[in-house]
Structure formats: C-alpha cells, structure tokens
Design a protein around this nucleic acid. Structure first.
Length: 504
RNA sequence: GGCCCUAUCGUCUAAAGGCUAGGACGUGGCCCUCUCAAGGCCAAAAUACGGGUUCGAAACCCGUUAGGGCUACCA
C-alpha cells in the first residue's frame, strides 16, 4: 500500500541510516494533562508510544502538560504515574526519572515558553493582543449568529509598534497570538493517514501565551517536543485539526519537523468519542473491578492495531516484538467490554497457581471472610477446581462461597428441580455410607454413592444433584466429587444433615 | 454552520488490484457431561450507496450518505 511505503521512507529518513530500524534517536512521549484519572484512551496512546519506543530501541518520555491552572487536580500526576506503573508502561524519562531533558513538568518551564513567544514576536511571526475576553465572546456570538466561521478577527494583528508599547506600559492584560499566513495551505504527512492538507485561511491566530503567563498547549507542545528531541509525535486524532498550527510554529522557529502519527479514537458503543457517562473510562475503574493488567494491555493494544496474523492473546513482550505503526488502522474502535472479559479469562488461566494464590489471598483479606483463616493448601484446591469457571480473581470466592462458609440458603429453582419428597431419606442413607469411609478420596466418595444408588435402585444422578445442592446450595459448579474433596468428610456430612432439615 | 478524518459481520479486525471475503468476541445449535463451565464441531452474520478506472475493485479516483473529531487565554 502507498501508505506503508510512505511510512518506511519517512521512517528511514528519520533513522538517518537506511535499513537500520534500531535507532536510539527515536524518542516519543506521552503528554497527559493532570486533570483526573488516567483514561483508557490515554493508556492506549501511552502504550503505543511505549511499544514503538521499545520495538525500535528508543526512549519513551512522560511529560506533564499542566499549563491550565484552572483544571489542575491535586494528586492527579502521582495517580497518573502510579497507574502507568501498574500497567507496566514504563517511561525512561519523566518527572521522577531525569534523562537530561527536564524538567518534565510544563509549569516548571514557563521561562522557556516566554522566551520563545518573545522570539516569535521579534521575528514578526506573533503579536501582542489586548482584546478583552468579553470582546472575544461577543465576536464569537455574532459570528455564530451570522453562521460565519468562528475565529479571531485579527483586531490586534497590525497594531503599530508604538501603540503596542504604550498598551504594554499601561500594564493591561495581553496575550501573544501566532500570525497565521492569510493565504496558502499547510500540507503535512501523517504516518497513519498519509497526506493531510488544511488551508491557512481556516486557521485561527491562535493564542500562544496566555495573559497569566502560561503557554497554551500549542506553543508548549512544539517547544517541548523540539527541546526534548521528540522524533515521533504519536497522539490522538483529536489533535489532527490543530497540527497545521504546530507545523507552522516549527517553520517559524526553523526547527526540523517530527513525524506525526494520529491514532484513531476509542469510541463509546454509540460510536461517539469514549467518555464518562457511558460506562467506565478510568483505568482505575477497571483495575478495581479485578481486570488484570495483562488483559487490559492486550485488549487496548488490539483496539486499532493487530499483529497481522490470527493470534489474539499477546503478552507485553510479544506486543513489543510485533508492534508497528504501519499496522495501526485509521478508523475509530468501540471499546466493548465482552471481549475484555474473555481476554481477562484467558490471561487469568495462563497465570501459575502460585500467583493466583497470592492474588486470591489479597482479595480474601478485603472480603467478608477476612477474619477466617484458610490455609494455602486449601485455597490451592479451590483454585484447581474453579479455574475454568473464573474470569476474575474474585470469582474464586464469589462464585463458590460454599468453600468458605456453609450455605445459608438453597437456590429455589434447583430445590424445585432436584429435591424430591424422597430425597431426605436417600440423603440420610448416603450420609451414613459416607460416615463409614476412612480418609476418602474422590473415588471412594464416588463408589460409596454408587453403592447407595444400587441399593436404592435409583440413578446416580438422583443422588448427585441433591447432594450438590446440599453441600453448595447451588446447582452449578465444579464436579461434585471435587467439591467433596475440598470440604472433607466431616463437613460434607454436616451439610447433608443440615440440608435434610432446612431444604423444603 | 465551517474545516478535517473515517466507512468490511452486532463488536474488534484480516485480505498491500486476482480463491467461496478469513479469524476472534458475542449469539444460536450439536457433541462431551453429575450441574455449570472449559473444550470440540457446526451455523447465522459484513465490503454504506452511486458512478468511474481496469480483463478484473472491499481495495484506486470522484460524488453522495452516514458517523466522528476540531472549531477557547482547555488539553
């Protein structure tokens, strides 16, 4: 495909050395704004950056874009870093990991942005604007009412130098805006979308430096990406329309352009941009629900990318090995939880027993059974019995509470179907037969039940189902004899007797 | 409204102009079976529409339609 070859050309040019994909010059970044929890879309962007960097032996940088003081949320940055760490998306440079390109928090780089804004003013590529917010609001309203394109009317673009100096001396509020050419167009290459072209006339004279002295995203991202040596800007598609402004800024500064790759958006089931109010979007939410990081990473990686073969369960190492921007698709992907559940099941199954055990113990500690002690050996048998039935670690408890506590109720539907008038008498005989067993194994329970069935001239299943109900209170679960082994002879008999009295 | 992006089963996707459009989740059925699962087998299910280009189009071009994104002194 044309797109693919374009990508290779772009890539090898950037590598500076043909046919040499391993290049330490590759530097990418994830640049979230610390306004809350890490969004799953954000995690995917971070992941693709990370995979791209690792695949090519480059560096992955975390940069905090906190240039909007109003939206600042206390602790959000720490949370972001912790969640990234939990997910295994490790950055090489970041606020707490200096790589010589810091600081990695934009609010600590204000002087740099001011200097660069001043440079553009001096070059005639930007200008001071003294328009009041009220005037701009009014302007937008009028444009909107007249169905005109909404943009700044460039009121201050051609103020005389003397006028500017006078207004500045008066100490009025001012911003610095970029001077967009009135004609022509910006054309740039996107690694995922190919050539993108936008006419200059539809571009706004974007504010670069706000009146509070902070830069806007557009200035900060260009300045930082340049000074941090970013080779590939891999970010969400929502940035595609403002990329021409960034391209223009690179030109104004005389800097080399990085490669751009705009990722397709993650979507709600109704295909709108993934958002709150249509389900969980914070990575934290999924973590709290018991999803494994392996499943989340695997799932998110496949939303917009695939390895090109028919594998669908991949580890982080395999993702690193297989990942390429060439195989990233162009259209948005719906985040559908059913497949995530299946992947969680798959990844949980792949975990060694010992690891599941420690996760189970951790979960138990926060459960209603926290006060009770269950030894490891006991829990291990439960894990063995429940593996094929557990999608989440908590299923080892919630789908089989009877392993932790005698049933206090019996599922009415199952009672109706399996518990006949003659059942209590049969259970009594069965309990007596069990009581004669010594250190019974699975087979011993089985043959004991078989003997009772023969004696009573009934089918084994006429005993099996009521017995399952008696010991578990449920109609579904592991093989009956597996349950009995876990419970042990005494507990089994106790539960049979209890059920004889209580099931009705 | 303007600009930009996108369009293959319900969902995630494969097919780089040439097989019967392949796989996965989910759904339904069958097998296995003491239940529920797991596993196995089978099935239903898609190239948005209309024009071109071509011997040949899901693929390339144009248009239409639909969806989405952006349109701030937010990022």
């Amino acid at each position: 495909m044309e797109q693919a070859s374009r990508f290779r050309d772009a890539f090898f040019v950037s590598a500076g050395r043909a046919r040499q994909p391993m290049n330490s010059k590759i530097r990418v970044r994830f640049a979230p704004s610390p306004t809350g929890f890490l969004h799953v879309g954000g995690l995917r962007t971070a992941l693709y950056n990370y995979l791209f960097a690792r695949h090519h032996g480059g560096k992955f940088i975390l940069r905090i874009e906190d240039t909007d003081q109003a939206r600042r949320v206390e602790g959000a940055m720490e949370n972001l870093m912790a969640t990234l760490g939990w997910a295994g998306v490790q950055y090489d440079e970041g606020p707490d990991r200096d790589g010589g390109h810091g600081p990695y928090i934009q609010s600590q780089r204000l002087e740099l942005y001011r200097a660069h804004a001043a440079e553009l003013v001096a070059k005639g590529k930007a200008y001071y604007c003294f328009c009041a917010p009220e005037r701009l609001e009014d302007l937008r309203q009028r444009q909107s009412a007249a169905k005109e394109r909404i943009s700044y009317d460039r009121h201050c673009r051609d103020l005389a130098m003397s006028e500017v100096e006078k207004l500045l001396a008066q100490g009025g509020r001012s911003v610095i805006r970029m001077k967009v050419p009135l004609e022509g167009a910006v054309v740039f290459q996107d690694l995922i979308r190919g050539e993108v072209s936008i006419a200059n006339e539809v571009l706004d004279d974007q504010v670069l430096l706000k009146s509070d002295g902070f830069p806007t995203y557009h200035l900060a991202v260009v300045v930082d990406d340049h000074h941090m040596g970013i080779s590939h800007v891999i970010r969400g598609e929502e940035w595609l329309p403002s990329t021409p402004k960034h391209v223009l800024l690179y030109q104004y500064f005389g800097w080399e352009l990085p490669h751009f790759a705009h990722l397709p958006l993650l979507l709600n089931p109704d295909k709108s941009k993934l958002s709150k109010r249509q389900g969980d979007v914070a990575v934290e939410d999924y973590r709290a629900k018991g999803y494994l990081k392996e499943a989340i990473i695997n799932f998110i990686a496949f939303l917009g990318w695939n390895p090109g073969d028919e594998r669908d369960i991949l580890s982080m190492d395999e993702l690193i090995k297989e990942f390429s921007l060439e195989r990233v698709g162009k259209s948005g992907a719906v985040f559908n939880v059913e497949k995530l559940d299946w992947l969680n099941f798959q990844h949980l199954r792949k975990k060694p027993d010992a690891e599941v055990l420690s996760m189970l113990k951790e979960y138990l500690a926060g459960s209603p059974f926290a006060g009770k002690h269950f030894d490891d050996q006991y829990l291990m048998i439960i894990i063995g019995a429940m593996r094929e039935r557990a999608t989440f670690v908590q299923d080892f408890v919630e789908k089989c509470g009877y392993f932790y506590q005698a049933p206090d109720q019996y599922e009415p539907d199952v009672v109706k179907k399996r518990w006949k008038p003659e059942t209590p008498d049969q259970m009594k005989i069965l309990a007596e037969e069990f009581s004669r067993l010594e250190n019974p194994k699975k087979e011993d329970y089985e043959s004991a039940l078989h003997r009772v069935a023969e004696t009573l001239k009934i089918k084994q299943s006429d005993l099996i189902h009521p017995l399952r109900l008696a010991v578990s209170g449920m109609g579904a679960g592991p093989g009956l004899y597996d349950i009995l082994i876990v419970l042990g002879k005494e507990e089994t008999i106790r539960r049979i007797r209890s059920a004889m009295e209580r099931v009705k």
